[in-house]
Amino acid sequence: MTTEDRARAGFADFVRAENAALTRFAYLLTGDRHHAEDLVQTALARVAVHWERVDDPAGYVRRTLCTQAASWWRWRRARPPEQLGGSVPERTTGPVEDPDLRLTLRAALGRLTARQRAVLVLRYYEDRSESETAALLGCRLGTVKSQTRHALARLRVLAPELAELVGRAPEEVSR
């Protein structure tokens, strides 16, 4: 087996092992299943080109997903609704089973900035440490801490119903 064949096999194994987790991560960043799948495919195509040189492919792909999701949100905000087709985004089944909680969580995450959304998804959905999150996002540890604090404070104000849906009063939600 040649080096190129081993690289292809390694990449294929990586995709099989990580595709579902990467798609869930992208879904939480975007709130749209189809867009999440597109982002994952684009990110995997990028890592495939550099496969032999990438030390941490999962981190590389997640960082690429965060960057692409932020770019997509910036592009979308810069366009009037008529240019975007004016369609209502479809409701898809996500990783949260309770439909009320899923819809509330989706709406709440949509109210955050792309960076805040990425930090919360990495920290609380993927259970990453602050230092892992900083490395994946290419920022400082202090940035992760402040973005987490600001995002949670913003959610407490904009979506207090999240605390009620998970069975806690808003003041009991971790700060």
Rank of each mutant, 00 (worst) to 15 (best):
M1A: 13
T3Y: 14
T3K: 12
D5T: 10
R6C: 01
G10H: 00
F11N: 05
F11M: 08
D13W: 08
F14T: 05
V15W: 10
V15N: 05
R16P: 01
A17P: 03
N19A: 14
A21V: 02
F25E: 03
A26L: 03
Y27C: 00
L28S: 03
L28F: 09
G31M: 09
D32Q: 10
D32L: 02
R33Q: 12
R33A: 12
R33H: 09
H34K: 01
E37H: 04
E37Y: 01
D38G: 07
D38K: 10
D38N: 12
L39E: 07
V40Q: 00
V40I: 04
Q41N: 05
Q41P: 01
T42I: 12
A45M: 10
R46Y: 04
R46E: 13
R46T: 08
A48E: 11
V49W: 10
H50F: 08
W51P: 04
R53Y: 06
D55L: 12
D55I: 09
P57Q: 08
G59L: 14
Y60R: 11
V61P: 04
V61G: 07
R63K: 07
R63C: 09
L65T: 01
C66N: 09
C66M: 01
C66Q: 09
Q68V: 02
A69E: 06
A70T: 10
S71P: 00
W73S: 11
W73K: 08
R74F: 07
R74I: 05
R76H: 13
R76P: 00
A78H: 11
A78L: 05
R79A: 14
P81Y: 08
E82W: 15
Q83I: 02
G85V: 07
G85I: 08
S87L: 15
V88N: 04
E90P: 07
T92I: 01
T93D: 06
T93F: 07
T93Y: 03
G94R: 03
E97T: 10
D98Q: 05
L101V: 08
L101Y: 04
R102H: 13
L103D: 14
T104L: 14
T104V: 11
R106T: 13
A107W: 10
A108H: 09
A108F: 08
A108S: 15
L109G: 07
L109E: 02
G110R: 05
G110H: 02
R111H: 08
L112E: 01
R115V: 13
Q116R: 14
Q116G: 15
R117I: 06
R117P: 11
R117S: 14
A118F: 07
L120S: 01
V121R: 00
V121E: 03
V121T: 15
L122S: 06
L122Y: 05
Y125V: 06
Y125E: 08
E126V: 00
D127H: 06
E130V: 15
T133P: 07
A135M: 01
A135R: 13
A135Q: 08
G142W: 10
T143N: 06
V144E: 06
Q147I: 00
T148L: 04
A151Q: 11
L158Q: 11
A159S: 11
P160G: 04
P160K: 04
A163G: 03
L165W: 03
V166W: 02
P170A: 12
E171I: 09
V173R: 08
